[in-house]
Computed example of a mutant assay.
Amino acid sequence: MRMSKDDDFSGRFLQILNDGMLCLMTSVGHKAGLFDTMARLAPSTSAEIAKAAKLNERYVREWLGAMVTGRIIDYDPSAGKYSLPATHASCLTRAAGIDNLAMFTQYVALMGNVEDDIVKCFKKGGGVPYSAFPKFQEIQAEETARVFDARLVSDILPLAGQTDRLKSGIDVLDVGCGTGHAINLMARTFPKSRFWGYDISREGIGAARAEAKKMKLKNARFKIVDAAKIDDREKFDLITAFDTIHDQARPTKVLKCIYRALRKGGTFLMQDIAASSRLHENMQNTLAPTLYTISTMHCMTVSLAYGGEGLGTVWGEQKAKEKLAEAGFGSVDVKQVEGDMLNYYYVTQKKSNDL
């Protein structure tokens, strides 16, 4: 194999290879709490870091080798001590909150588990079912808490223009609620409103109910429901769907169910990936390679596994508007939250004169 750092592409690809491996090591560091531990320590030896983190020193030392050569952690060879720069800690630790990027690296290992199954799909079609991703709910719950704790009430919900009504008391549904954290946060913040969360995952609904009980909420309810089989009619004033529509096997049918479930003049707030439906328009999207990979390895294949449309993660703004129109919605406002490069927030209403 002939590769030279003087060759632009081979040099770039060597960097891709290194960065891919660093993603795995970053995921390990996140899960093991190493970044959190090092952010609290003065420059320390591998033994001191392992002791503080309650981990095996030999593994910590080898992990540090990857982190140092990857320019993520600093090393003083004269003292044999390692340190995590504050600027790096600001996007690698749990204390970084919404700015923590290390948690996203967990998806690399998760999707690597189904690589062979995906290759089979390339040859034979079909898809890989949701059950093949046993850790997905867990990672999603972590990501949801990270984002919603920081932004849901203060930045995201105001986009729907329903804050005053939520304070007075309205009926709200979250479709594809997962572990229900968004519903529980809203229910705690707006005690006069009534909240429902629907999801097909028994595990997710169980976690949602447990959290609601822990938070002593009386206005949050959860139900195991296939989003394509929602049979409510004009029951809700506000319906939300946070990063769930493109995952559905039958997204068009789900959006039609949402439309029917809204009361006249009711509002639908749909969070989904910030991207274009046109490939060439995503060339400047910093996250485009990641998004297309996640789509291939999870979102698209899960939908196809159930005979679905397989929209994929990067279905994009144009296709989203098209699907909303098919469901019956009229004009759609596409909004963004400052500092959130990942998501678009689609806001639309059910026609007040609709029968």
Rank of each mutant, 00 (worst) to 15 (best):
F190T: 02
V175G: 05
G206E: 12
T179Y: 05
M186Y: 00
R202L: 12
A182E: 06
D171W: 07
V175F: 05
I183R: 05
W196G: 00
Y198H: 10
I200C: 11
L173A: 12
V172E: 01
S193W: 01
S201Y: 08
K192F: 07
D199P: 09
L173D: 04
A208I: 07
M186T: 00
L173V: 02
G197C: 09
G176D: 04
G176I: 14
R194N: 13
D174H: 05
E203I: 04
Y198C: 09
I183K: 02
G204M: 06
P191V: 04
T179H: 04
G197T: 08
G204A: 00
L173T: 13
A208T: 13
Y198P: 07
F190V: 11
T179F: 00
S193Q: 05
H181I: 15
A207R: 15
W196Q: 11
G197A: 01
I183Y: 02
T179C: 02
Y198M: 14
A208G: 10
W196N: 03
F195M: 07
G180H: 12
I183N: 10
A182N: 08
A182S: 15
V172P: 04
D199H: 15
A182Y: 08
F190M: 04
C177Y: 13
A187L: 00
I183W: 01
G176E: 11
T189P: 06
N184G: 08
S201K: 07
C177N: 02
A208E: 00
R194Q: 10
Y198S: 11
N184H: 06
V172Q: 09
C177S: 11
G204E: 01
F195W: 03
Y198D: 08
C177G: 03
M186L: 12
A182I: 15
A207T: 12
D174G: 07
R188M: 09
Y198E: 11
M186S: 15
H181P: 08
S193C: 07
V172N: 00
F190Q: 01
D199S: 13
G176Y: 15
I205W: 10
A182L: 06
R194H: 14
V172F: 07
G197M: 03
A207D: 09
G178H: 02
D171Q: 12
I200E: 03
R202E: 15
R194S: 14
K192R: 14
I183E: 00
W196D: 01
L185D: 03
R194E: 10
E203T: 11
G206W: 06
G204F: 02
G180Q: 02
G197Y: 06
H181Y: 14
S193D: 14
G176M: 14
D174M: 05
I200T: 14
V175M: 06
E203L: 15
G178F: 05
D171I: 06
A182M: 13
V175Q: 02
D174N: 09
N184S: 01
A207C: 13
A182T: 01
F190G: 01
A207S: 09
H181T: 14
E203H: 08
E203F: 12
R202Q: 15
H181V: 15
G178P: 04
K192S: 13
